[in-house]
Write a protein that binds this DNA or RNA. Structure first.
Lengths: 311, 311
DNA sequence: TGATATCAATAGATAATAGCTATCAAAAGG
DNA sequence: CCTTTTGATAGCTATTATCTATTGATATCA
């Protein structure tokens, strides 16, 4: 049995005429006759009672016609479903974002996709890098925005932008006197860090390499969110590093926290992290990933830098 | 698209493994891969996200899987329906019978089919030959039991039996003195006939050929049923011919009507009619027709005669 | 780290089949 | 009696589903 055979069958049943049915199916009459015969042989029943003058459905034929219509409707539903999903820039997409990026990027991301991909429905999961990669690999996420090279070879990445680090300290702090800082300006004793697992903790530490060994004193004050750390900074508990985009929006000034960029090195390499769109190498939505990354990099905020093309 | 493709698709979706799915479908893995790819191309969507380590349904794939199951269920329903109708000796059959046969044959017919074809459901239409032939040709009937050669070449017949004619007259009638009659014994003035359209009317007249022209006197007393005629006979209104089987059951004796057979001619040809099973030449139920006619002739009542084999 | 195992995809050849044109055979109608 | 209609048949071709053998890419294990 075959969907084509069923459509031939329906055509004959509805026209009561092999020739006209063949025309409707865009095949020759002998072809159609042969296929009907094949179907009858396969089912072991006679579907039509034929004579030169008339073609009449048998009792089984009538019964089967009803079911055949149902089956063909199902086939049409499959085509419809496929059609509805054939736009690569449409549908639902579940995006994981690390906590040091999520709050800053989600509003603009939603605005941008609403504008450029009106048929796309985004949902978000905010978690740390490792759990996000796990979810990505298991299929629980379609993509993630991360700030590290993906660990697994099954994952693919598209660079989005480089985001410099800034130092944040309370108003009146000695660092406020300089417009640009260097890593050594940070006093390891003062440095506040996110809890382990946050990639930004490791990145901040690698900027302040001199602080690694001496930071043990702060072991008991590791905050689980940027928000908490900045509150600690505002309260005068220390200084910290924050990603550039976290300086936006005026929240810092309100709480009396001051932020300063670092001086760029001669080669233009300041302290920064590379933010990437990550997804399974096997993802069927590569096209969407490319479109999405391009849309993001097309309209970057001034505080971050597009990735140089040759990379 | 194709029912086979859909079953391949379902197999892969359910095993998440091309090799095992291929095994389940009894085809090679490359075959299955190719067909899935073809299906994806045709639908314009990716159904599976494949890697060496895992095969995962996409969102469209999940949606389509549900519909595909529905479609396959429909295909199974078609096969089931065909299976249920594949026994040629089962199902419903609508049988037309002329009024001068119906009352005598229906009880034994029902008993016989109930015994020999328990899966067969008979229903009956009692009418005169012409309307029955029309219904037969239009498909409103599956078969008919008639006593005439079918008029249309589209109809086929199987002889069942030859049924002699008997004369019926009131108790004390002069004919009662003879044990066997000849046609000329019938007085045209007395002959009562069924109304026009009944084949038995014409057959009775052809037996009493001498009565044809002289029967005009009875023109106003044509009864529409054998029952009525016999009541007239019982009341002394005349004599009539009846088919042999109408003499069964004791009803005649109760009403004081006497029946006598005719003498057979030297060649064994008495006055009689041939009763046949008639159906469309194109009928898909030829097998049932043969079985049915054989079952009827296998167990004829003593008053009728099997049709000689050479005919 | 290198060897092995796993698994889907690809290549190339073959078998099955759906398709065509031309023709036939039966029946109906003028 | 001839013509028309219509489904079935015959013979051939194009398509395609299928096979085996192999590749290439990962993952696993020693």
């Amino acid at each position: 049995m075959n969907l084509r055979d069923l459509s031939y069958f329906c055509a004959v049943a509805e026209t009561s005429h092999f020739g006209r049915a063949a025309e409707r199916c865009h095949v020759s009459q002998p072809t159609l006759s042969a296929q009907i015969k094949k179907l009858e042989d396969e089912l072991g029943v006679t579907l039509f009672e034929r004579s030169n003058k008339s073609v009449r459905l048998t009792a089984v034929g009538q019964e089967i016609l009803l079911i055949a219509h149902r089956v063909q409707e199902g086939a049409a539903d499959i085509r419809r479903a496929a059609m509805a999903h054939s736009d690569p820039l449409a549908g639902k997409i579940k995006l994981g974002i690390i906590p040091t990026i999520a709050p800053m990027i989600i509003p603009s991301l939603l605005a941008m996709t609403g504008r450029k991909f009106p048929a796309l429905h985004l949902s978000f999961v905010e978690d740390m890098t490792d759990p996000l990669e796990d979810m990505l690999r298991s299929g629980a996420l379609d993509a993630a925005i991360l700030a590290t090279d993906p660990m697994h070879s099954t994952l693919e990445e598209i660079p989005l932008y480089d985001e410099p680090f800034w130092a944040a300290f309370p108003k009146g702090h000695r660092l406020a006197q300089k417009s640009h800082l260097v890593a050594m300006d940070i006093d390891p004793q003062e440095l506040l860090l996110l809890s382990e697992g946050h990639c930004f903790r490791d990145q901040a530490l690698s900027v302040c390499r001199h602080a690694v060994s001496q930071n043990a004193a702060q072991a008991d004050t590791r905050a689980t969110s940027m928000e908490t750390i900045l509150n600690l900074v505002a309260a005068g508990a220390g200084v910290t590093l924050i990603p550039a985009l976290a300086t936006q929006g005026g929240r810092l000034a309100e709480t009396g926290v001051i932020a300063r960029p670092f001086t760029k090195s001669p080669r233009g390499e300041g302290a920064s992290r590379r933010v990437r769109l990550v997804f399974r190498r096997t993802s069927p939505r590569l096209q969407l990933m490319l479109a999405l990354s391009e849309a993001i990099t097309d309209d970057l905020p001034p505080l971050v830098h597009a990735v140089p093309k040759e990379e």
